[in-house]
Nucleic acid binder design. Structure first.
Lengths: 235, 235
DNA sequence: CGGTGGTTTGAATCCGTTCAAGAACCGTGG
DNA sequence: CCACGGTTCTTGAACGGATTCAAACCACCG
């Protein structure tokens, strides 16, 4: 196996920062720029550590500064659903802005760093930040809709292909390579997010690999033919 | 078929307005109260009419005042997904607050009435309203997560049961009967929302009906045993 | 009336799940 | 360094629930 790759690690991007597409990034980028001048508390986390838990009082939002997080909701009877994977620039915790407690868990999938943004700060002079938060909420909502659409209309192989394309685009927007990536999540977590069993994820990756569109080596994935992946999603 | 029932129709609720649960309603109720004093333009719509379309410039948000709407997103290759059904008090259009154009279609499923809330109003003295909008966005996001969880972990019968329970609760929160309801959407629309085929919806309703938990007569549904429906969802 | 859109029902098929087993990988401690 | 236990990943085979395709039915409306 090759030496460690940066990707979602703390190492700064080599290329220029986000430039195009994702409105999520656009809003979040604005957020990060706005906050850079304020002295915020930083939270360094290791794998599997919780940034916050559902039910805990939510006194702050968190901006992912490095690493990778998953957020997941839990039903009373123990069913769990991962609602998203989050990279640098993503905002966590805004979903429970109208609640006294967090509505989901946020768990580091890797060595990660998050900036704490106390809610009382949003009330005061940082109303601009609150507005930014509103915009990221809207963008998050639309992103969820896109995944709902995908999960409701695409087969297993297509879902996995879409996930890889989406992740590649997000990595590229952060200055990383859009072709070579190292997944931070297990097959089970990926399956949970895509509403598939982990075995199905494995098989889908296997088939994509067999058709030459990607190369798979455990969690290390190389996209050989992004256009081919996109073509899989049509119709 | 019996005479027309009120339910989501324009007729005012007989009982008291929303009182308990749904945080969505809580936030929206606040919104409606806030706006009642302002002279807003009203839009009366008939079945299948568009309140707004994806791609249209979004100059305003809309508060559902009467009737029932569906919102749906569309992929380039024609796949469609209904993201929600909306009753009185629900806010439409906030999802594209950070965009110049709407991101979804909003279509009346029934004779409906919506209040137009121009975005420029939100900038000025109505900052309080904007804050309310933020809160409803957060609540919407969580609601989406709940449905993602449901669609990813529940079978067809369970999804339909959950939908009926959810709709019943929302109707009750608006002063209507939580036992007797008239669906405003087709089996196909329901199936689309629940990520099922329309035939599957029909069969699921049939099975729930056969087990005595509900009574089905076309779009007219009576919940005989809400607790039994809830029991279906456990585990 | 015929036509249209919506619903129901049946039968065959298919895709993803489930269950089971084994392989590969990882961090840890002897 | 290697042995170890636990986690993660892969692969196979059988199963099952939802889909697909087809047909008939119904209510409503022009």
């Amino acid at each position: 196996m090759p030496a460690s790759m940066p990707l979602t690690r703390a190492a700064p991007p080599s290329g220029p920062p986000a430039r195009h597409c994702a409105s999520v990034s656009a809003a979040s980028a604005g957020l990060e720029a706005l906050l850079r001048q304020f002295p915020l508390q930083r939270h360094g986390l290791r794998r599997k550590q919780y940034l916050f838990r559902a039910g805990q009082p939510c006194r702050a939002l968190f901006l992912v500064h490095a690493g990778c997080f998953k957020t997941c909701v839990l039903s009373e009877d123990g069913r769990e659903k991962i609602t998203g994977f989050h990279l640098r620039g993503d905002l966590l915790g805004a979903d429970s802005l109208d609640l006294p407690v967090h509505a989901c868990d946020a768990i580091a999938l890797d060595v990660s760093d998050a900036w704490e943004l106390p809610v009382w700060m949003l009330q005061g002079q940082l109303a601009g930040v609150l507005h930014q938060v509103t915009l990221t909420l809207a963008a998050d909502l639309r992103r969820d809709w896109q995944w709902m659409l995908a999960l409701g209309t695409l087969g297993a192989e297509q879902r996995v292909a879409l996930f890889l394309l989406d992740l590649a685009a997000r990595l590229q927007a952060r200055g990383f390579s859009p072709r070579q990536m190292l997944l931070r999540m297990t097959r089970a977590e990926l399956g949970n997010f895509l509403s598939l069993q982990l075995e199905t994820v494995t098989r889908a990756l296997g088939r994509l690999s067999a058709s030459g569109l990607i190369r798979v080596n455990g969690r290390e994935i190389r996209i050989n033919d992004a256009e081919g992946l996109r073509r899989l999603l049509e119709r």
